[in-house]
Design a protein around this nucleic acid. Structure first.
Lengths: 239, 239
DNA sequence: CGTCATTTTGAGGTATTTCAACGAAGGTGG
DNA sequence: CCACCTTCGTTGAAATACCTCAAAATGACG
């Protein structure tokens, strides 16, 4: 789960929305200068497991960049239900607010660290550093696509299909796996259920089905192994 | 549906993610200088109803800004189903690509116009105009939130609830209504169904129910009137 | 005014949700 | 180190809501 950048400075990572001439899906990284620029603005924060970074409705004073670990961004609904809007991993951005208020609550799902950047100073810097700002633009664009992908997941009928798609998304968006075919799952099952829009029971039944079919296999509570990649891919894409 | 800016130059509109001192939900607008800057880069395009702006998978050479009318961004799935990812109105941005390819197809749902901006020149300009770029950042952030809201809509169980939420979204995101309590619906019912993740039949039954309950009333094919705002709001928010 | 697409209506099938209860796991304190 | 407790995950059975298929009615457009 730890995929740190060379130095302990903030970094952003995103697929550029323009084609790069320097080869395929190359990721854009910040230059050292930019990382230091961000570092001077930011405070490194350690958050214990289940620690809350901010709550929905609170004044949005800062933007955050996940440095290490994982967070979930969620919202509790009047009905008592909870919707997870996103899972956040290293280099992900969070805290984008609406009219000065946070729209979601963000909580660490494991001991994590993040950078906290005061909005005021960040916008001031961005206003004169277009190059740095461009990275933020790429990053937010990336998160927009991610969010659209999530809509597709939720739109699926089949529970097993949603889960396959979710795993697919985790596999593609994060670091190349340490162990091939093994996907780390730092979050709880019910968090996943809340993310893909299923009840915990339906989630459980669907994973049970996938396991019985020999498509996946859980390795402990926080990892899945893909046993039958062909059927797994087909499930995730057939839609 | 026409909410043009004073001049015929491109404009962006978004709720700022920082609190404004100049009062509540004020929208950020481009300065005249910035609009002209964009105008020199862009080509104004008239698109007839059902005209395709670009297709998914095609090379993403340009970014677009909706000037007038309305578009839908959608994706046809292997299963033959279609998912509408977003409806785009005046000042909305579209054409953000992934690795140089468009991810959705965009089609006008009425005679519309948009600005076409070559990616290359846009990024070149953004790199030296941080202020302009900041507007794009706000805008993309705005669309990210919109997309998250859509996930919430799709996540709802009740068809009537999804529709209420959808109408709520249209009502809040677009221009103040010409006629109070009347929401224009430029898109077809099945487009809406594809957006909220329902079959056309379920959509029809749900709107029928809402109508029978005296909550809404269709005025022609392209407008709804809210008859019972209290129950309508409750439906959209109870979730 | 005719044709075609969209929308509506009907009946049956199927998936998930719900409610309830059991089992397992993790954390805490004695 | 063990016992307790709380949270999370699983399983079962019934209910609900949407989906599918098929066909009629409405509406749009040339």
């Amino acid at each position: 789960m730890t995929r740190r950048s060379p130095t302990d400075f903030p970094s952003l990572r995103a697929i550029p929305f323009i084609a790069t001439k320097t080869g395929g899906g190359v990721t854009r990284l910040l230059t050292d200068r930019q990382r230091q620029e961000l570092a001077t603005l930011s405070t490194r924060m350690n958050v214990s497991s289940r620690g809350i970074v901010y709550r929905m409705g609170g004044p949005a004073a800062s933007l955050f960049i996940c440095a290490d670990g994982a967070f979930k961004s969620y919202r509790d609904l009047p009905s008592g239900r909870r919707r997870v809007a996103a899972f956040l991993f290293a280099d992900d951005l969070f805290g984008l607010a609406q009219a000065g208020k946070y729209v979601n609550t963000v909580q660490a799902i494991m001991p994590s660290t993040c950078y906290r950047i005061p909005m005021e100073s960040l916008t001031a810097v961005l206003r004169h550093d277009a190059e740095l700002e461009f990275h933020f633009l790429c990053k937010v664009t990336h998160e927009l696509r991610e969010s659209q992908r999530r809509s597709f997941i939720i739109g699926r009928r089949s529970a097993a299909g949603r889960i396959a798609m979710f795993l697919h998304m985790l596999e593609n968006n994060n670091a190349p796996e340490v162990t091939p075919d093994v996907i780390p799952l730092p979050m709880s099952r019910s968090d996943i259920a809340n993310y893909v829009g299923l009840s915990p029971e339906a989630m459980s039944r669907a994973t049970g089905q996938l396991t019985r079919d020999g498509i996946i296999k859980f390795e402990g509570a926080h990892a899945v192994r893909i046993l039958d990649r062909e059927r797994y891919d087909r499930l995730a894409n057939e839609f």
